[in-house]
């Protein structure tokens, strides 16, 4: 439907829209956090401070539900960063999208004659380049987060809990080794693709509803509301799964 603004630099392809949106997400999260923690107070917290304290407590409870808090307190910051980054990222694509229409080839963002012809065949005036979207609607970004989480979980297991960690690959019998490996790989894929799928599908459906014009207003409102819910749930799911995977690898018991 839309194509991405791909820039080639030093022989590498960069997806400009994802990079821009990641930076936007980063700035929004930082702004919220900085505003909320500007005037910290022990006895008389502001509304925003209360809000971020609620986030901290929420993530703490979430971690406490998966592992012993003595070990879990180190991951509070990770959980907060994950949930805020993913939630804000999920919300960004909902209110609007920025799309540019190109009738002339623009090599710098990979708009070629071919892609313009393609779009014209489908009845558009030119190639559509998508600039504003949820960064989490990009599989490269969500897989990046998933790789980080899975790598962290396995590193912690290997470094802190070596014997139990290695032993669990041959549980309950060495013949199960391939299955256990598949299980670990599938964790990586499901973690990244679940987030991507939910958010990407949400944006695609918004695009589809927009095609309905005036008749799409009511469904659009409903779907936007539902997307807020989905975005919040996915941020929560990603964070709690992160903690579950970490706890599985660092816990001694089975």
């Amino acid at each position: 439907m839309h194509q991405l603004p791909i820039v080639e630099w030093l022989g590498m392809k960069f997806d400009l829209s994802s990079i821009i949106m990641i930076v936007v997400t980063l700035i929004i999260v930082l702004l919220i956090a900085m505003l909320a923690t500007r005037k910290l107070s022990v006895t008389n917290p502001s509304k925003l401070q209360n809000f971020v304290e609620w986030i901290v407590d929420f993530v703490r409870n979430l971690i406490a539900s998966t592992m012993d808090m003595k070990r879990g307190s180190k991951f509070v910051m990770l959980g907060i960063t994950l949930i805020m980054f993913i939630f804000v990222a999920n919300m960004l694509g909902l209110p609007f999208a920025i799309v540019t229409e190109h009738t002339e080839p623009m090599q710098s963002i990979s708009v070629t004659q071919e892609s313009i012809e393609d779009a014209k065949e489908k009845g558009y005036a030119g190639a559509h380049v998508l600039w504003w979207k949820s960064p989490t609607a990009d599989v490269s970004v969500t897989m990046g987060l998933a790789i980080m989480v899975i790598f962290l979980a396995h590193y912690l297991g290997l470094a802190r809990n070596t014997k139990h960690y290695l032993h669990h690959y041959i549980e309950p019998h060495p013949a199960f080794f391939p299955l256990n490996v598949i299980k670990e790989v599938s964790k990586l894929l499901t973690l990244g693709l679940r987030l991507f799928g939910n958010i990407y599908a949400g944006e695609v459906l918004i695009g589809v509803i927009l095609l309905a014009g005036v008749f799409g207003i009511l469904p659009l409102i409903a779907w936007q509301g539902f997307s807020i819910f989905v975005g919040a749930i996915q941020a929560f799911v990603f964070t709690i799964l992160t903690m579950v995977y970490i706890s599985q690898n660092i816990e001694h018991k089975h």
Binding site: I6, D15, S18, L145
Partner: peptide
Amino acid sequence: HFYWTSTVFALIAF
């Protein structure tokens, strides 16, 4: 499409 540059950028940004 999968652009590994986005992946790396996401990790750095995170």
